[in-house]
Amino acid sequence: MIMTAIDVNSDLGESVGGNPVSDDAAIIEVVSSANVACGFHSGDPHDIARTVEAAAARGVAVGAHVGYRDVPGFGRRFIDMDPAELADEVLYQIGALDALARSKGTAVTYVKPHGALYNTIVHHEEQAQAVIDGIRAFSRELPVLLLPGAVAIEKAEQAGLRAVREAFADRNYDPDGTLVSRRESDAVVSDPDAVAARVVQLARERTLLARDGSTIDIDAESLCVHGDSPGSVELARRIVDALQDAGIEIRSFL
């Protein structure tokens, strides 16, 4: 089955004190959705505000990129939290970002968990429920970007939230459909030609190749391109060009 359109998202707003983690302005020129940090894993209010302002100017959807409160670990370390506290922290992050977004003429329109939290709620039932509880406390209308097969998808749908399945352009997958850990040397696909071929395969066939060469089914509505990788801007442009050359429109899932 061939998609006629797919959303392209990127993790942005992670700069602190004016020190850029990624070239947000350039990435925003090619994506349709921006997952904007909320200050818990990275980002400060001023840099976050600049990112949402750029997104608003181009009509790019703004999502709350919520995570564990772990700046030193960039939100990539699991934290064993009380579910009620995690739900409160998710709600807090969405509210803070939405306030900044509204001051710049836009608003939070979806949520995507970050890093370790994103991976944890693939299998961790209590934390998955806590994340969904925090989102639902803010709004019952916010879609949630999640990994296909995640237990959080079931929790979201049970709560009446729309679960949007996501794939990653430059990340390797294990045969079970989970992402290869960033601790592994082959976690990231660095060859631009290989990444371009992968995204076209995803859009056309809804499949990707796992690290062992097997084919896995990924029924994804959104495709993530990382903004903090070396050459990320050029890679993002290459991905978008490959999709458009294949007749696939870049469009938000909203």
Rank of each mutant, 00 (worst) to 15 (best):
G134E: 07
D47Q: 14
A130C: 10
P45F: 01
I135G: 07
Y118V: 09
L146K: 06
D47T: 13
E157D: 12
N119A: 14
L145P: 03
G73A: 13
L142I: 06
K155S: 15
E85D: 15
V151E: 12
S139I: 13
A96Q: 01
R77F: 11
A61Q: 14
A99C: 08
A56G: 04
V144A: 05
H123W: 15
A57S: 14
L142S: 10
A99S: 08
I79L: 15
V62L: 03
R140W: 09
G115S: 12
G149T: 11
R136G: 12
R77M: 05
E126R: 15
V52S: 01
V60R: 00
P72N: 09
R69D: 15
A96S: 08
P45R: 01
A55D: 01
A137Y: 05
A107F: 07
K104H: 08
D88Y: 01
A61C: 12
S139H: 09
A137Q: 14
L91E: 13
A84F: 02
H46A: 13
R102N: 00
R50Q: 13
G134W: 07
A152M: 08
P45H: 02
Q93Y: 07
V131W: 02
G75D: 03
Y92L: 13
A87N: 09
Q93H: 06
G73K: 11
G75K: 02
H46G: 03
A150C: 05
H124Q: 15
V52M: 00
A130H: 10
L145R: 05
V144T: 03
K112R: 14
A61E: 14
I121S: 07
H123K: 15
T51P: 06
I48D: 02
D80G: 05
A55Q: 01
S103N: 11
E89T: 10
G95M: 03
